[in-house]
Design a protein around this nucleic acid. Sequence first.
DNA 1: TTGAAAGCGCTAACAG
DNA 2: CTGTTAGCGCTTTCAA
Lengths: 357, 357
Amino acid sequence: MVTLADVARHAGVSASTVSYVLSGKRSISAATRERIQHSIDTLGYRPHAGARALASSRTGILALMMPLRTGLYVPVLMEIAMAVTTTARSHGYDVLLLTGEEGPEAVRRVEGSAIADAMIVMDVGIDDPRLPCLREAARPSVLIGLPTESAEAADTAGLDCVDLDFEAAGARCVDHLAGLGHTGIAVLGEPPAVYERGTGFAARTLTGLRAAAGAHGVGLLHRPVDGTYAAVTAAVTRIFEERPGTTGLVVQNEAAVEPLLALLRHQRRAVPEDVSVVAICPDQIALHASVPLTAVSVPAREIGRLAVERLVRRLAGEEPRGTELIAPRLTARASTGPAAPGVPSARTEDRHGHGGH
Amino acid sequence: MVTLADVARHAGVSASTVSYVLSGKRSISAATRERIQHSIDTLGYRPHAGARALASSRTGILALMMPLRTGLYVPVLMEIAMAVTTTARSHGYDVLLLTGEEGPEAVRRVEGSAIADAMIVMDVGIDDPRLPCLREAARPSVLIGLPTESAEAADTAGLDCVDLDFEAAGARCVDHLAGLGHTGIAVLGEPPAVYERGTGFAARTLTGLRAAAGAHGVGLLHRPVDGTYAAVTAAVTRIFEERPGTTGLVVQNEAAVEPLLALLRHQRRAVPEDVSVVAICPDQIALHASVPLTAVSVPAREIGRLAVERLVRRLAGEEPRGTELIAPRLTARASTGPAAPGVPSARTEDRHGHGGH
DNA sequence: TTGAAAGCGCTAACAG
DNA sequence: CTGTTAGCGCTTTCAA
């Protein structure tokens, strides 16, 4: 193995000079820099990560806590993970992947063993048990998500958060449908497990949906669904039975999109003539669905990128703290249109508790 | 920060004794072990990963090279990644995620900087440019996949490979259909990009499909397709135009499954009365499709687990080298049945080149 | 602009 | 069964 000492010897300089060439932390004469660089290339030297970590207490690693819990839609998570690794590499960092259910223990392990310089925390829930550890931790961290039902109620003191503004996204969907004259709106939400865990983004979306429905005086029915044909069929059938005046559907469940569209076709409900559909999902899904969907896009790549950039700035000593929510962008496509005239209205209802309307 | 020296002082022993308690590499009297363990717990000591890596030249990290190239189906990759991290943790390892396109350079970086003890390499292509580096590398590695079109032609000298036996899987699908009397079989394959890159698993499947088709004397048409409604519709339409006698379909493309089933419904081709469909995909997809699919299951979790277990054994000094292919398991479900009598036969054809007679 | 030297926290001979 | 000690390869004061 080639060490820094080997390079120093080969170039006829001291070890510290080589180190400073690498780090750029002090000025080196062009002549010696070139000589050293040449030795580095010739010998194929690479700094030893462990030695560097020990001496500098910086690992060049970011930990990504991505628990893959039931009901989550994997491709979106993966897109975030990709953006994280890509952005991290562009800043010279590698990414350690933590997918387990270990929770707080994993945070302590990363912190205590100095495995990583900082961490990115995904799948944040309301009262997430990892939060106390993160607040105490000496190393910076960024949450992808908010640990609250609403941005206003956010107890994010001492935390850095990055996410889509799901609350505004929910509101935006209802605004769009209400603006088209729809007065009976139903929401196909994430799988029940997601709400039961108190997952932040789902709760915040619901808050926004309800607020906007209230403001517009339109009825809102909310149904969590698993992303299967059977579950979607059952839920949608019940929605139309219970409230036949439903003409607007909001879907926040990537896996349910195609089952829903297939079912509507099968039931001979034309989109958007009979039913308008607004999704909250990545652009790719909205575009490639069997009917191009009007949707608020979930900017997975941007979220991952932002999280890393914040962390990198924090590690560089800056303090860009606080919550940064990306404003939702709704793109109108083929799945929404004006409400058919004369449809009956209905009262707000809710199945998930938290006291609807 | 609590160091090993702190623990030693607190327990009234030498540093090496503490170290040996941790590693279990020499016997310690029960009394001192307990005393030391108590000090560790009291002080909340965690070994410093960098220091340990430097002193022992073992990082406790496995690198997972998972390039996310176009045409790959993310959930399956993620399931493998999950199995890798879970299994790795159960053996005391963490996982470093490398998703970039860096290829050989990433291998050299891991090797040279001693970032990880070993690596798992995914998305292996024929003549993969990473292979030379891996063969030279001092650290062990395991490929998930084979760098060849056929297990027989495998130039896997000096490489460890783990995968589903896709060649046998392809053959198994044709066997099943031929056994039901189908004589016109078409394959909906992975997206074109996957074949163009020479991705090993896709090539091997094709080898197996062709071999079995030849053995049974049935026609075989192969079409790469993107996993979109448009692409599937175009491909399937052409297949039935070109060869109306097609009654058996093999799908090796998770994203194409639902578009295919939707299209067949739309075209009023009953499954399995008019067309039998066999998939090569994870059980979960086969089970939850709108028609439960007869399928050879892609055992993503098992593949990830096997890869890690091999690597861990290699790191422990064992030499379980060579290629380990998981035998395919075909489960008959609702999507296949006997061929309707009297359907015309057709000659084997192929679009992808490699001269399918 | 460069060098010398003292660690960073841990492991693993070597010695008892 | 336990202690002493010499590094692992790099960073970073302190000196020049």
